[in-house]
Deep mutational scan, measured.
Amino acid sequence: NKFNKEMRNAYWEILLLPNLNEQQKRAFIRSLYDDPSQSANLLAEAKKLNDAQA
């Protein structure tokens, strides 16, 4: 399933972002589970926040 693969990839990438705190990571991951079809958008948002907090 395409969404499962995308979601899994986004999950691990979000977990490994160094500048997000645990609460932020949990919020993004919760959103991933709520709507896996938004994986790419959520990952992009997480990366943007990660860069902003660098």
Score class of each variant (00 low, 15 high):
Glu6Arg: 01
Gln24Pro: 00
Leu43His: 05
Glu6His: 02
Asn9Arg: 15
Gln23Asn: 08
Phe3Asp: 06
Leu16Gly: 15
Tyr33Leu: 04
Ser31Tyr: 04
Arg26Glu: 02
Asn21Trp: 14
Glu22Ser: 10
Gln38Leu: 14
Ile29Met: 03
Gln38Pro: 02
Lys47Asp: 02
Arg30Ala: 13
Tyr11Ala: 06
Ser37Gln: 11
Leu16Ala: 15
Arg8Ile: 08
Asn50Ser: 08
Leu17Ile: 03
Lys25Gln: 04
Ala40Asp: 08
Glu13Trp: 07
Leu42Arg: 13
Phe28Leu: 08
Leu32Glu: 00
Asn41Tyr: 05
Pro36Thr: 05
Ala54Lys: 01
Ala10Ile: 09
Phe3Leu: 08
Lys48Ser: 11
Tyr33Arg: 07
Ala54Glu: 14
Leu42Ala: 08
Asn1Leu: 03
Ala52Val: 10
Lys5Met: 02
Lys2Leu: 10
Arg8Thr: 12
Phe28Asp: 00
Leu43Gly: 03
Ser37Lys: 05
Gln38Ile: 11
Asp51Leu: 15
Leu17Val: 01
Glu6Lys: 03
Ser39Pro: 08
Glu6Asp: 07
Asn9Trp: 06
Pro36Met: 05
Ala54Phe: 13
Asn4Leu: 07
Ile29Pro: 00
Phe3Pro: 15
Asn19Gly: 11
Lys25Asp: 00
Ala54Pro: 09
Phe3Arg: 01
Leu15Glu: 02
Asn50Thr: 01
Asn4Trp: 10
Leu20Glu: 00
Ala44Thr: 15
Asp34Asn: 07
Asn21Arg: 08
Tyr11Thr: 05
Ser31Phe: 08
Leu43Asn: 04
Ala54Arg: 00
Lys48Glu: 13
Ser39His: 15
Gln53Tyr: 10
Asp51Ala: 10
Trp12Tyr: 15
Glu22Leu: 06
Arg8Lys: 13
Lys2Gln: 15
Asn4Arg: 02
Asp51Val: 11
Leu16Met: 08
Pro36Gln: 06
Asp34Glu: 15
Leu42Trp: 13
Asp51Ile: 11
Ile14Lys: 00
Glu6Asn: 03
Lys47Val: 12
Leu49Arg: 08
Trp12Val: 06
Ala27Phe: 09
Asn4Asp: 14
Glu22Met: 06
Leu49Asp: 05
Ser39Val: 13
Asn4Gly: 11
Ser37Gly: 03
Ala46Asp: 00
Arg8Phe: 05
Phe28His: 03
Asn21Ser: 05
Lys2Arg: 09
Lys48Ala: 06
Glu13Tyr: 05
Leu32Tyr: 01
Asn1Gln: 05
Arg8Ser: 08
Met7Ser: 04
Lys47Leu: 07
Ala27Ser: 14
Ser39Tyr: 15
Asp35Trp: 04
Arg30Ile: 08
Arg30Lys: 11
Ser31Asp: 12
Gln38Phe: 08
Met7Gly: 02
